[in-house]
Deep mutational scan, measured.
Amino acid sequence: MTYKLILNGKTLKGETTTEAVDAATAEKVFKQYANDNGVDGEWTYDDATKTFTVTE
């Protein structure tokens, strides 16, 4: 399945996607991606759209 991440960081905004077997796996990938890019904030997940959002 394809999962999407929306980044609403103070210095980085954008979107990315990943292929993962489940939401938990996608979340690990996205949290590492956000961490690597210096984005740390509040996370939400919408199962209907398979979209994670992180907002600083």
Rank of each mutant, 00 (worst) to 15 (best):
Asp22His: 04
Asn35Trp: 14
Thr2Ser: 09
Ala26Gln: 00
Thr17Arg: 10
Lys10Asn: 10
Tyr3Leu: 01
Thr53Val: 09
Thr49Arg: 06
Ile6Asn: 04
Asp36Gln: 13
Gln32Thr: 08
Glu42Tyr: 14
Val29Cys: 07
Thr18Met: 10
Thr17Cys: 08
Ile6Cys: 05
Lys31Phe: 06
Lys4Asp: 02
Thr11Arg: 09
Gly41Trp: 06
Thr25Asn: 08
Gly9Gln: 04
Ala23His: 11
Thr53Trp: 08
Glu56Trp: 13
Val54Cys: 09
Asn37Phe: 15
Leu5Met: 05
Lys50Asp: 02
Thr51Tyr: 03
Thr18Glu: 04
Thr16Cys: 11
Tyr3Glu: 00
Ala20Lys: 03
Leu7Gln: 02
Lys28Ser: 09
Val39Trp: 14
Asp22Ser: 07
Thr11Asp: 12
Glu15Arg: 09
Leu7Tyr: 13
Val29Glu: 07
Tyr45Gly: 00
Asp36Ala: 13
Glu15Leu: 10
Asp22Asn: 09
Glu56Asn: 05
Asn37Ser: 09
Gly9Met: 12
Val21Arg: 10
Trp43Phe: 04
Lys10Cys: 12
Thr18Ser: 05
Ala23Asn: 06
Ala24Lys: 11
Ile6Lys: 06
Thr44Glu: 10
Asp47Thr: 09
Lys4Arg: 13
Gly41Tyr: 03
Ala23Glu: 07
Asp40Pro: 04
Lys31Leu: 07
Tyr45Cys: 01
Ala34Tyr: 03
Asn8Leu: 14
Glu56Ile: 09
Thr2Ile: 15
Ala48Ile: 12
Gly9Tyr: 06
Val39Cys: 05
Phe30Cys: 02
Thr55Leu: 06
Ala24Gly: 09
Tyr3Asn: 01
Gly38Ser: 07
Gly41Gln: 02
Lys31Gly: 03
Val54Tyr: 03
Lys10Trp: 11
Ala24Cys: 10
Phe52Asp: 00
Thr18Ile: 15
Thr53Tyr: 11
Val39Lys: 02
Tyr45Pro: 00
Lys28Gly: 07
Ala34Arg: 01
Gln32Ile: 09
Glu15His: 10
Leu12Ile: 14
Tyr33Cys: 04
Ala26Thr: 01
Ile6Asp: 02
Lys4Trp: 11
Gly9Trp: 06
Lys31Arg: 15
Leu12Gly: 08
Lys13Thr: 09
Glu19Met: 14
Gln32Val: 10
Asp47Trp: 09
Lys4Ile: 13
Thr2Leu: 14
Asn8Glu: 08
Glu19Tyr: 15
Trp43Gln: 00
Thr18Lys: 04
Ile6Ser: 04
Ala34Ser: 05
Lys31Ser: 04
Thr49Val: 06
Ala26Ile: 02
Gly38Ile: 04
Ala48Met: 12
Asp40Glu: 13
Ala26Asn: 00
Ala23Ile: 10
Thr17Asp: 05
Asn35Arg: 15
Ala48Leu: 14
Phe52Gly: 00
Glu27Tyr: 15
Lys13Glu: 05
Tyr33His: 05
Thr49Met: 06
Val29Gln: 08
Glu42Ser: 10
Thr44Pro: 00
Gly9Val: 08
Thr11Asn: 15
Leu7Asn: 02
Glu19Phe: 15
Thr53Glu: 05
Glu27Cys: 12
Gly9Lys: 04
Lys13Ser: 10
Val54Thr: 03
Met1Gln: 14
Leu7Met: 12
Leu5His: 00
Leu5Ile: 04
Asp46Ala: 04
Asp47Tyr: 09
Val29Tyr: 15
Tyr45Arg: 02
Asp40Gly: 08
Gly41Phe: 03
Ala34Met: 06
Ala26Cys: 02
Thr17Tyr: 14
Thr25Met: 15
Thr55His: 08
Thr2Gly: 05
Trp43Glu: 00
Thr17Asn: 06
Met1Ala: 12
Ala23Arg: 12
Asp46Phe: 04
Thr49Asp: 04
Thr11Gly: 10
Thr2Val: 14
Thr53Phe: 09
Thr49Asn: 07
Ile6Leu: 07
Asn35Met: 15
Thr44Gly: 07
Asp22Pro: 01
Val21Asp: 11
Asp47Leu: 08
Thr55Ile: 08
Glu27Asp: 04
Thr55Trp: 10
Asn8Pro: 03
Asn37His: 15
Gln32Phe: 05
Glu42Gln: 12
Lys31Thr: 05
Ala48Gly: 09
Asn8Ser: 08
Asp36Lys: 08
Asp22Thr: 05
Asp36His: 09
Tyr3Cys: 01
Thr16Pro: 03
Asp46Gln: 05
Thr55Lys: 06
Leu5Phe: 05
Thr44Cys: 08
Asp40Lys: 14
Tyr45His: 02
Asp40Leu: 13
Lys50Ile: 03
Thr51Phe: 03
Thr17Leu: 09
Phe52Thr: 00
Ala20Met: 03
Asp46Trp: 04
Glu56Cys: 05
Val39Gly: 03
Asp46Met: 04
Lys10His: 11
Asp40Thr: 14
Tyr33Met: 05
Thr25Trp: 09
Asn35Leu: 14
Ile6Phe: 06
Ala48Gln: 12
Trp43Cys: 02
Ala24Asp: 10
Asp22Gly: 04
Thr44Asn: 10
Gln32Pro: 02
Ala20Phe: 04
Phe30Ser: 00
Ala20Ser: 06
Asn8Val: 12
Asp22Phe: 04
Asp22Val: 03
Asn35Asp: 08
Asp47Gly: 09
Lys28Thr: 10
Ala20Val: 05
Thr2Trp: 13
Glu27Trp: 15
Lys50Tyr: 11
Thr51Met: 04
Ile6Trp: 04
Tyr3Gly: 00
Leu7Arg: 02
Ala34His: 01
Ala48Thr: 14
Glu15Tyr: 14
Lys13Ala: 07
Glu42Trp: 13
Ala20Asn: 03
Lys4Leu: 08
Lys28His: 09
Met1Cys: 11
Asn37Gln: 15
Val54Pro: 00
Glu42Pro: 05
Tyr3Met: 02
Lys4Tyr: 15
Lys13Asp: 05
Ala26Phe: 00
Val54Trp: 03
Val21Leu: 13
Thr44Tyr: 10
Thr18Asp: 03
Thr2Arg: 14
Glu27Met: 15
Gly38Asp: 08
Ala23Trp: 14
Thr18Pro: 01
Glu27Leu: 15
Val39Pro: 02
Trp43Ser: 01
Ala26Met: 01
Ile6Met: 06
Thr49Glu: 06
Val21Gly: 09
Ala24Glu: 12
Leu12Val: 13
Ala26Tyr: 00
Glu27Arg: 09
Glu19Gly: 05
Ala26Gly: 02
Ala48Asp: 12
Ala34Gln: 02
Ala48Ser: 12
Met1Ser: 14
Phe52Asn: 00
Trp43Tyr: 02
Asn35Gln: 15
Tyr3Trp: 07
Lys10Thr: 10
Met1His: 15
Asp40Cys: 12
Gln32Gly: 06
Thr16Phe: 15
Glu56Met: 07
Asn37Met: 15
Glu19Ile: 15
Thr51His: 03
Glu15Cys: 13
Thr53Asn: 04
Asn8Lys: 13
Val54His: 01
Lys28Gln: 12
Asp22Gln: 03
Tyr33Leu: 05
Tyr3His: 03
Tyr45Ile: 02
Gln32Glu: 09
Thr17His: 12
Ala26Arg: 00
Ala24Gln: 12
Gln32Asp: 06
Asp47Phe: 10
Ala48Glu: 14
Asn37Cys: 11
Phe30Ala: 01
Leu12Gln: 11
Asn37Gly: 05
Val39Glu: 03
Asp40Ile: 14
Leu12His: 13
Lys50Phe: 11
Val29Gly: 04
Asn37Ala: 15
Thr11Glu: 10
Asp47Pro: 14
Glu27Lys: 10
Asp36Pro: 01
Gly14Glu: 09
Glu15Val: 15
Lys10Val: 13
Asp22Lys: 03
Asp40Met: 14
Gly14Met: 13
Ala24Trp: 11
Val21Glu: 12
Gly14Cys: 13
Tyr3Ile: 01
Asp22Cys: 05
Asn37Leu: 15
Phe30Lys: 00
Val39Thr: 04
Thr44Arg: 09
Val54Glu: 01
Lys13Val: 11
Lys13Asn: 08
Asp46Lys: 04
Gly41Met: 03
Met1Val: 14
Lys10Met: 12
Ala48Asn: 12
Thr18Trp: 07
Val39Ser: 03
Thr11Cys: 13
Lys13Cys: 11
Ala24Met: 13
Glu56Lys: 04
Asp40Ala: 13
Leu12Met: 14
Lys10Arg: 11
Val54Gln: 01
Gly9Ile: 08
Glu15Met: 13
